[in-house]
Simulated assay, not measured.
Amino acid sequence: MINLRLLKIHNVQLPEGLEYLSNNLRLFDWEGYPLKSLPPNLQLDKIIELKMDLSRIEQLQQGIKPFNNLKSISFENCRYLIKTPDFTFAPNLENVNLQSCTMLHEIHPSLLVDKKITYLYMMKCTSLTTLPNQIHMESLRRHNLSWCYKLKKFQRL
């Protein structure tokens, strides 16, 4: 599996996670990822799309190795995600999906000053109360904050 480029895992429970992931992965899609965080030694230098929908992940650990090619990240319906990471680990990120992350209450400021993000979905983030003060997203074309009922303070995007 050294040259594996696409990995999709759906409806499979591996409580210990995976022991090894190919550094050649372009798409990593694990719906229902069972662990609270990604492995600390995760090295996905060529990853373009990371999908962890419906996972038990709580947060991406600080000091995650850079994903320089990452364009799209999705944590849709991750009910245990409490805060986002410092998104500088993914300098070419364009699409971010945090839809229905009902426990999400903290957005790292780096997300809202990213100049390359074009799509930002945070619909139904019902625990989110504020967004960082600095919002400067030059490339943003579409965003959705619908049903973020507790959101009280934010600048225009």
Rank of each mutant, 00 (worst) to 15 (best):
I107A: 10
G17S: 01
M52T: 03
F87R: 02
R5D: 08
M1P: 00
K152T: 12
K71G: 07
P85C: 09
L111H: 04
S139T: 02
M122A: 13
I117L: 08
H10Q: 09
R142D: 12
H105T: 04
N77P: 07
I57T: 09
G17Q: 00
K115L: 14
L93G: 09
H108A: 09
S72E: 15
L145E: 07
N95L: 12
N144D: 15
F67K: 00
L18Q: 00
Y119V: 00
K83P: 13
M137H: 04
E58M: 11
K51W: 12
L25R: 01
C78T: 07
N11A: 09
V113W: 11
H143M: 08
R142G: 11
T102K: 06
L60F: 14
E19Y: 01
L4I: 06
L104T: 09
F89V: 09
S37A: 06
L25K: 01
H143Y: 09
C148W: 08
P34R: 00
T88D: 03
K65M: 06
F89G: 01
Y119E: 11
L14T: 02
K150I: 05
I82F: 15
K71L: 12
N41M: 06
L7M: 08
K124G: 12
I57P: 13
Q134G: 12
E19V: 02
K51I: 13
P39Q: 00
T130V: 15
N11S: 13
M122C: 06
F89A: 04
Q155W: 11
I64Q: 01
I48S: 15
L140H: 01
M122G: 05
L112P: 04
T84G: 04
D86N: 14
S110M: 06
N23C: 08
F67W: 05
H108V: 12
F154H: 04
N92M: 14
L131G: 05
D53I: 03
T129Y: 14
L111T: 02
Q61W: 10
P132V: 13
Y33S: 00
H136L: 08
N24G: 08
K124S: 14
L18N: 00
L112Q: 05
I2W: 09
N23W: 05
L60W: 10
D53G: 10
R5L: 11
E138V: 02
L93W: 13
N133R: 07
E31H: 03
Y149F: 14
P91K: 08
I135F: 13
I135W: 11
K150T: 03
Q62D: 15
C148S: 07
P132K: 06
L60H: 04
M52H: 05
R79Q: 10
V12H: 06
C148G: 08
N97H: 02
P15A: 03
L35S: 01
M103C: 14
S37K: 01
Q13G: 04
S22A: 03
S100H: 08
V113S: 10
